[in-house]
Amino acid sequence: MPELYYSHAIREAMAEEMRRDPRVFLLGEDIAGYGGAFKVTQGLAEEFGTERVRNTPISENTIVGVGVGAAVCGMRPIVDIMFQDFIALAMDQLVNHAAKFYYMYGNQAPVPLVVRTPAGGGRNYGPTHSQSLEAWLIHVPGLKVVAPAFAADAKGLLKSAIRDDNPVVFVESKLLYGVRGEIPEGDYTIPLGEAKVVREGDAVTLIAYSRMTIESLKAAQILSSRGIEAEVVDLRTLSPLDIDTVAASVEKTGRAIVVCEDCLTGGISAEVMSRVVEECFDFLQAPVKRVAALDTPLPCSDVLERAALPDANKIVAAVEASFAAYP
């Protein structure tokens, strides 16, 4: 199988869908000639022209709203929000418009909109360029939220998102853009709403998504050398959440650690943990634990940022603490 960078897999998904469907077009800041802040859309304007790869003014709320308006009129826009932090500026159009139109207007017109946005810390960008705000989004009925960890999933899930008739927020990881992965050949999609067991084990289930899936796999390697075989479940889609795949794993291992890059309080980990407790209580041999970012803004300083964010070593420590307290 050929290998692609995560960022190139995303670009390839958009290019293939734009070739397949003339209704698909891109809207965003600096996405045309410049190729986007992370070069994800580089080259697309050359192939598809600046009508379909459309640079916008810096107006996040209206960029999303224009996407909604075009979507209800039969187009299939992909909106680029340069940093997920800026989604704060677009929340009205996302929450009160994109998420609600299909439902509150009596199912007259779907809103086939994709909002792509890179999240996460680890690059010392500081408090307003590093956040993981997915939890805000899963709290809104009507939005679907996807957050892939691997290049192959990024491509297949983005193609599904573009073909989906509902608004989908597609959360990308800045730190994973430069990571290569094997990509299946040809036109393939991966269904939204399906988690995946990416490493099998019998002692503990690590539940993660996006970059924390990669950190969980690293942690599993370390744990394996210490005699603990961890199973890793990559959520891939955060809303709707595939609790069945998670529950099947936790019922097998009897132990669950939820690993998320967003901050702890009210985070994705809170929702996943609640669902695990509801679904798997009788199978649990230890309390469910969470490894997440500290409840602080993410500082710029490398030392401080590392201290605030979860990583493989913190996951290992949480697993070992669980076994120490509940052998």
Partner: peptide, 20 residues
């Protein structure tokens, strides 16, 4: 129900009309 919420929507609808 959102004050001036329709302006971006109208702009998007007009973009669709122009593109089509």
């Amino acid at each position: 129900g959102i004050t001036a919420g329709g302006l971006p929507i109208a702009t998007g609808a007009a973009l669709a009309a122009k593109m089509k």
